[in-house]
Amino acid sequence: MSTANLFSENAEHLRRRHLKGALLAGLAFLAILLAIIVLVTLLIDVFVDGLPWLRPQLFTNFPSRFPEKAGLRSALQGSFWLMILTALMAIPVGIASAVYLEEYAPQTALTRWIEINISNLAGVPSIIYGLLGLGLFVRGLGLGRSLLAGALTMSLLILPIIIVASREALRAVPPSLREAAIALGATPWQVIRDHTLQYAMSGILTGIILAMSRAVGETAPLITIGALTYIAFDLRGPLDIFTVLPIQIFNWVSLPQKEFQRLAAAGIIVLLGFTLLMNALAIFLRNRLRQRW
């Protein structure tokens, strides 16, 4: 075999490898295109139906059997306070659990077992949390079908997500940073407070965004614990009965009249806006924190 022949064979081989690379890049592009097309179609469909119904009444009025008078007031109140209460309960507990597991807990069979359980809990269907909430909070603790019971249930639902994401973020902080702080005489708590948590915060916030976005769109567990569908009065406090945006949207979608389906589309836009607003807040916080280092 001559050297020239070998060279041309190599060139042929190289060409094929490049071709494979291009093919893979093309497939990946197609995949993202597919996802985007589906998303854009959905958005266009929702916006075409819903935009004309996106009026001030939608925010100030209670639900009604007349589509032109119907609004999301009670659902917005419910979703807003549910998210605040859920965040207040789930975020501190979630981050603290992650810190304990990642920074303090000894690597024993027991902690590994706990870790596996938390990861598995993140995959438990949400309706199961609803049943847990019904038995534990609504009936066991006697909270009734209240906003607080809903928020507690939602906290349980998103805790595993927050813990798993926070742990990933803490683990990504290089050990050398911790060691440097320890070398300078910092106590474990000082290391965590001033260094590890600071560096991990952007990752933790990403996890919180994901978790809260999931919570705001959940319906099944809330229906299970007894969230209502039609509420035409303002929320009075954490022990009051409540409804949320997805329940109201679902109710409108299932009504026979076309106008209510358009109203549901408007409700979906509001829910999208709600989620985006929440995420924007988290991203804003994340950027602020990043600048401080």
């Binding site: 009936r139 006697g142 909270l143 009734g144 079908r145 022990l239 009051d240 009965i241």
Partner: peptide, 10 residues
């Protein structure tokens, strides 16, 4: 039995 107490506060 806890039901009475449960339903009332709301």
């Amino acid at each position: 039995p806890a039901m009475a107490a449960t339903a009332e506060p709301t």
